[in-house]
Computed example of a mutant assay.
Amino acid sequence: MPEGKQKELEKDIQRFEDEGGFVPDASLENARINGLETTLVQMEEGHYLTGNHNLKEVYERVKDKLGRPLVYTSYVADLNGVVGIEGVGGPPKEIKNDFDWECFQEHQSQADIIITATGHMNRVEKLGGKAQNVLSQFDKGQPFEKFGDWRLEHGYKRRNPDVAVVSRSLDFNFPDALTQGERRVFIFTTHEMENSEKARNFRERDAIVVGAGEEEVDGKVMIERLGEEGYGLIMHTTTPKILEGLPLDRFYVAQVQREILGDPNKFITIPINQNTPEEVNLSGTRFKLTESFVHEGAKAKDDKIITQRFLVYDSGPFQEALNS
């Protein structure tokens, strides 16, 4: 980078930091040369609802090329890609923060349907309102009702996305309110469990139970079925383990600049590390870093002030569809 441009960049970064906003990550010069815009833009509330992050508009551009729904996910992670700890619900307190949670809502508010799993449903049943709410947080009177308003204003039929639960055993429950107001609940399980007594009980509660694999739920079969049901934007909201075999187009990462300590054998991780790779492989698919911003000043749930790097990765096929 020319010296004059570098000094200009540093001044703009300092200005944005002084204002407490987001700044483009200046350390990713190689990625920028490979196609990232160099224009500095302060990231404000609603950033993930506009431009290249308005997924409804993006999907209209790529749906014919993709030939299936657009699938995306969002995680908060530490410097080594740790997003969770086995046996502990939700992100660890060292990285969990309200600012990232707000960004997560912007992602989820655009989904036609979300994918979750047995573990979350069981936490909701056990903890009630103390569990992280990804099922009804856009309802009137809930913390993120503004996104329910946004959905209705932008052509979505309901305040909350429909729900798809992945479960081999069907050993879970879900709130009766989930199927009220014409909201649809899909349960994807194995072919063996599809016709079980548990499946029949769920169907009596208006859930749609689908067999989508022999020993495990086949992610491709699940996405194909949801596409046939008319869903265009699908957000994966649960453990990375379910990403195996799942067609994925984009994943968002809030990388907190801290390391979580503990037993590495219990860590749940994604393939992101301190070097912030410009390309990563996830479930056999290559993803390229397409955007990076840094945010200062958020408070983690252990009361530490943190720095976060917000990263956007797109798959190769998705990039090709966007650029064609």
Rank of each mutant, 00 (worst) to 15 (best):
H47A: 14
H47S: 12
Y48T: 08
L49N: 07
T50F: 00
T50D: 05
N52F: 07
H53Q: 10
N54F: 09
E57D: 11
E57G: 09
V58F: 00
Y59N: 09
V62E: 01
D64R: 12
D64M: 04
K65W: 01
R68Y: 06
P69L: 12
P69A: 12
L70H: 05
Y72R: 15
T73R: 01
Y75K: 10
Y75P: 01
A77I: 07
N80G: 06
N80D: 13
G81A: 03
G84I: 09
G84H: 04
G84M: 08
E86W: 05
E86M: 14
G87C: 05
G89H: 04
G90Y: 03
G90N: 08
P92T: 10
K93C: 01
K93G: 02
E94L: 02
E94R: 05
K96D: 15
K96Q: 12
D98T: 12
F99G: 09
D100W: 00
E102K: 14
C103Q: 14
F104W: 03
Q105P: 00
H107K: 14
Q108C: 14
S109C: 14
S109H: 02
A111R: 02
D112V: 14
D112N: 12
I114D: 04
I115R: 01
A117D: 15
T118C: 05
G119L: 05
H120G: 06
M121S: 09
N122Y: 00
R123K: 13
R123P: 00
V124K: 03
V124N: 02
E125H: 09
L127V: 08
G128S: 07
G129N: 13
K130N: 12
K130A: 14
A131N: 03
Q132Y: 11
N133V: 13
V134H: 05
L135H: 00
L135R: 03
Q137A: 14
F138E: 09
G141D: 06
F144W: 10
E145D: 13
F147V: 11
F147L: 08
D149S: 06
R151A: 09
H154K: 10
Y156N: 04
K157E: 15
R158T: 15
R158Q: 14
R158C: 09
N160R: 04
N160F: 06
P161Q: 08
P161H: 02
D162K: 05
